[in-house]
């Protein structure tokens, strides 16, 4: 008997320790990356590194700005494509689609979320890159196809599931009786969606977009394979870009052989982590608050 209770007590303690892991891990990642980037932060100030434009590791110049802008460009362009399409699909699935269609499409969206990013990349190279190269002249531009636009298209498809999934949950949390209140005033379904459902779910929808944004911001392999990777700030969607995650992925090989290079890359990872954390924590906080309100 005592043995059983002792076992239970020990298990309780051990499990508590395990439960601390996720919270601790977030901090560990932050401090680990910070620790490794101290070498470069000791020589250059953080704003100089972040907003410096020249990237010549061999000369000891590590300006991250072109990469930061590359990420921002690709991510924003992807969001411009992904947000309307995802939200319209989510509205359709939640408000209009018959159950049979909804239950068929939801697994498809989940499946899309499970496709490895390398496969997205291969598909992008096979299909989107040539497409962009082909349409560029129509816009008076020349492009190899390896461009911001190609990255944005591939990324947009990758964030569909995130935005759709979260906003479907947000729409589901809007009470049916509230929709009926609007309908029984003689509003059409669309008017009800526009004025009531979207407004009621606004915070959650913004959160879903923020989660999509942070998902896109950190995506590495698929983007890396289609954006061209030239460290210049892009001026048009047909230009190539070099996003931050791609920088990290392309240079792990050399980083231990050039002084300070590892510090610069770890700083890049830290910047990436911080931006994604801000968006994620904000979005999750909004969602938790909305969930509490709904109860």
């Amino acid at each position: 008997m005592v043995k059983r209770l002792l076992k239970d007590l020990l298990a309780r303690r051990a499990m508590f320790l395990f439960t601390a892991v996720p919270g601790v891990l977030v901090f560990l990642m932050f401090f680990g990356l910070y620790d490794r980037s101290r070498s470069i932060l000791a020589l250059h100030s953080f704003p100089d590194l972040l907003f410096g434009s020249s990237w010549f590791p061999l000369k000891g110049q590590f300006g991250l700005y072109p990469f930061l802008m590359g990420t921002v460009w690709v991510t924003l362009a992807a969001m411009i494509l992904a947000v309307p399409i995802s939200l319209l699909s989510a509205i359709y699935l939640s408000e209009y689609a018959p159950r049979r269609i909804r239950e068929t499409i939801k697994p498809v969206v989940d499946l899309l979320a499970g496709i490895p990013s390398v496969v997205f990349g291969v598909w992008g190279v096979l299909m989107i890159v040539p497409l962009v190269a082909k349409i560029a002249p129509a816009f008076g531009a020349y492009s190899t196809g390896y461009s911001v636009l190609a990255g944005a298209i591939v990324l947009a498809i990758m964030v569909f599931p995130t935005i759709i999934h979260v906003s479907l949950e947000v729409f589901a949390s809007v009470p049916r009786a509230l929709r009926e209140a609007s309908l029984s005033l003689g509003a059409t379904k669309w008017e009800t969606v526009k004025h009531v459902v979207l407004r009621k779910g606004l915070a959650g929808i913004i959160a879903s977009v923020a989660l999509g944004f942070s998902r896109a911001f950190g995506e590495t392999m698929a983007v890396l394979m289609v954006v061209g990777n030239t460290p210049i700030i892009p001026k048009s969607p047909f230009d190539s870009a070099y996003p931050l995650p791609a920088l990290l992925a392309n240079n792990y090989g050399e980083m231990m052989s050039i002084p300070l290079y590892d510090g610069a890359l770890m700083l890049a990872a830290l910047v990436l982590l911080l931006i994604v954390l801000v968006f994620n924590i904000g979005a999750r906080a909004v969602l938790i608050k909305a969930e509490r309100k709904a109860e």
Binding site: P175, A177, S184, L185, V196, K200
Partner: peptide, 13 residues
């Protein structure tokens, strides 16, 4: 037909 539901459903405005 005006509808009055079990719980008041004020619109989010």
């Amino acid at each position: 037909m005006g509808l009055l539901s079990q719980k008041p459903q004020v619109l989010p405005m």
